[in-house]
């Protein structure tokens, strides 16, 4: 293990390290997968991405399925070699120092890769051995992490018997067994029910508060908004916008949005009649979005024109609006 590694516990490192070199540094990063038949000239999933993730930061990739998030994540995880561009992780080149990089990463994959035939605690112990942890050390950390993800009572249970949310928390615990300098989470709450999602988020907040650097991919804007200090919006293999959630909203949306629902099929026609009442009008299949800094006033004007929407909602802009603006699509379709 390189000597540059800072002594660190689950309690995290001091935020003073923030000025250090980025943990992830990418310029013009590309990934092309060979086509299964010819073996060449296949799909280019990532088409030139620039990134920097600073120590202690919670960084997010937001984008729909197929945007290139997971491909980028697998390159950052040093398991999938880039096919172009520059990539440095923890100051090292993944092409030549894959093992050294992976020794200091924690990875929580999109699909659970737990061993169903081992019990909960054994999953952590066996995984710890891959990192060269001594038995006693692995046992101590396993118990500490089970406590952290609230699975202490389940230590002897078989993984098969756990709920989806518990499995995800166990996967997060497993990804922390080596005290990673950087934790990668690929869609950490996809497929979980709302209660289980909040439990996972709560644990991730705690990690963040302790100074763990997080890199998260998600196609949920609420997840991105809650967890990420800074994020990039990806679409079609490229970064289409970058910033903190409030910055992105300021740059790409208005302060408020008025959502209006009319009868089926009326939205396009109504949109023309109210186009001058907002900075921008977006037509969705089931509703009309009026982008404006003052939603209530816009709504009043709509009504003054004799239009009677069946339901209305005035709300703050969210990342979903940013995404819609940038890509013309909603995130979860």
């Amino acid at each position: 293990m390189p000597s540059t590694r800072r002594p660190e516990t689950l309690a995290g490192r001091s935020p003073g390290a923030a000025a250090a070199e980025p943990l992830v540094h990418a310029r013009g990063l590309r990934k092309a997968y060979p086509s299964p038949r010819s073996g060449r000239g296949g799909v280019e999933a990532v088409r030139g991405v620039d990134l920097d993730v600073a120590p202690g930061e919670a960084f997010g990739f937001l984008g729909p399925n197929g945007a290139g998030k997971s491909s980028t994540m697998r390159m950052v995880a040093a398991v999938s070699p880039p096919t172009g561009g520059e990539l440095r992780i923890l100051g090292m080149d993944p092409r030549t120092h894959g093992r050294e990089i992976r020794a200091r990463l924690g990875v929580c994959p999109q699909e659970d890769t737990l061993d169903n035939e081992l019990d909960v605690r054994q999953n952590l112990l066996v995984y710890g051995s891959y990192f060269g942890l001594r038995r006693a050390e692995a046992a101590r950390r396993a118990d500490e992490l089970l406590e952290f993800v609230q699975l202490t009572e389940k230590a002897r249970s078989r993984v098969e018997d756990l709920s989806g949310g518990m499995k995800r928390r166990l996967t997060i615990a497993r990804s922390l067994i080596n005290n990673p300098d950087l934790l990668l989470l690929d869609e950490p709450t996809t497929g979980l029910d709302p209660q289980a999602r909040h439990l996972v988020w709560d644990r991730l907040f705690r990690l963040k508060a302790r100074g763990t650097t997080l890199v998260v991919t998600t196609h949920y804007m609420d997840e991105a908004e809650q967890l990420c200090d800074r994020l990039v919006v990806m679409d079609g293999g490229v970064v289409v916008a970058e910033g903190s959630p409030p910055e992105l909203i300021r740059a790409w949306s208005t302060r408020e949005v008025a959502e209006l629902r009319f009868g089926v099929g009326e939205h396009a026609e109504v949109a023309e009649r109210v186009a001058d009442l907002a900075q921008r009008v977006e037509v969705l299949p089931d509703r009309l979005l009026l982008y404006t800094d003052d939603g209530e006033t816009a709504l009043m004007r709509v009504r003054e024109r004799g239009l009677q929407p069946t339901t209305v909602l005035v709300r703050r802009s969210t990342l979903e609006d940013v995404f819609l603006r940038l890509t013309g699509r909603t995130l979860v379709e």
Binding site: T113, D115, F131, G132
Partner: peptide
């Protein structure tokens, strides 16, 4: 089925 190899490659193992 269990994707154990994927978990292994996320560690220093190659």
């Amino acid at each position: 089925w269990q994707r154990t190899y994927y978990a292994m490659t996320a560690s220093p193992l190659a």
